[in-house]
């Protein structure tokens, strides 16, 4: 089973197919919310950053090339840039949403609670799934996705080449997703 291939194919198809983009979104939105929630510690900001990240992904979907890496890494690269911009400027960027004609979502307390719950559940699931990975993959995925290290840093820390570090992260993510999607299906 190679979920990454499906994921990459979905993003390629999303260039012209709104339903494919929606499927790609549904596959990753919880992970992206959790990614931001872990870093900004505020559900409202996490939701705002998530919306801008997917608007930027929608805007730039034609620039994605599977040969350059997995779709998940591409998406989290966008998320990371949004986070850096937010930390530098002190406010969440709205450029992509404006370009895509998307309004700001007014979040009610109920919606924020739900975002919070999604983030908590996702973080707990990721922790459990991460623990089940082989040691080398777990260290690589944690370094890349949780701690935001670059591939060259991961390669140096694990005494492997940069392509090997990328492959380790990619395989780890694929295994994570396989585990988590199998948990979703009773």
């Amino acid at each position: 089973m190679e979920p990454d291939r499906d994921d990459d194919a979905l993003l390629v198809a999303a260039a012209d197919d709104p339903d494919a983009f929606a499927a790609f979104y549904r596959l990753h939105v919880r992970g992206v919310i959790a990614y931001f929630r872990r870093r900004v510690r505020d559900a409202e900001l996490a939701a705002d950053l998530t919306a801008e990240t997917f608007a930027a992904a929608l805007d730039g979907r034609r620039r994605y090339a599977p040969a350059r890496g997995p779709a998940a890494a591409w998406l989290y690269g966008i998320a990371r840039r949004q986070l850096v911009t937010f930390q530098r400027r002190g406010h969440v960027e709205r450029r992509a949403r404006r370009r895509m004609g998307m309004d700001r979502i007014e979040l009610t307390d109920e919606m924020l609670e739900r975002v919070e719950a999604v983030a908590d559940a996702e973080l707990a699931e990721v922790d459990v799934a991460l623990a089940a990975l082989p040691e080398d993959q777990r260290a690589a995925v944690r370094a890349r996705i949780v701690e935001d290290h670059d591939y060259d840093e991961i390669a140096a820390a694990q005494s492997i080449s940069e392509p090997a570090a990328r492959q380790r992260v990619s395989r780890g993510l694929a295994a994570l997703r396989a585990r988590m999607s199998s948990q979703e299906q009773p």
Binding site: P18, A22, V29, M100, I105, M111, V118
Partner: peptide, 10 residues
């Protein structure tokens, strides 16, 4: 939020 954002993106 997840549903509203999906509708906006689509």
């Amino acid at each position: 939020f997840i549903d509203v954002l999906e509708q906006q993106l689509v």
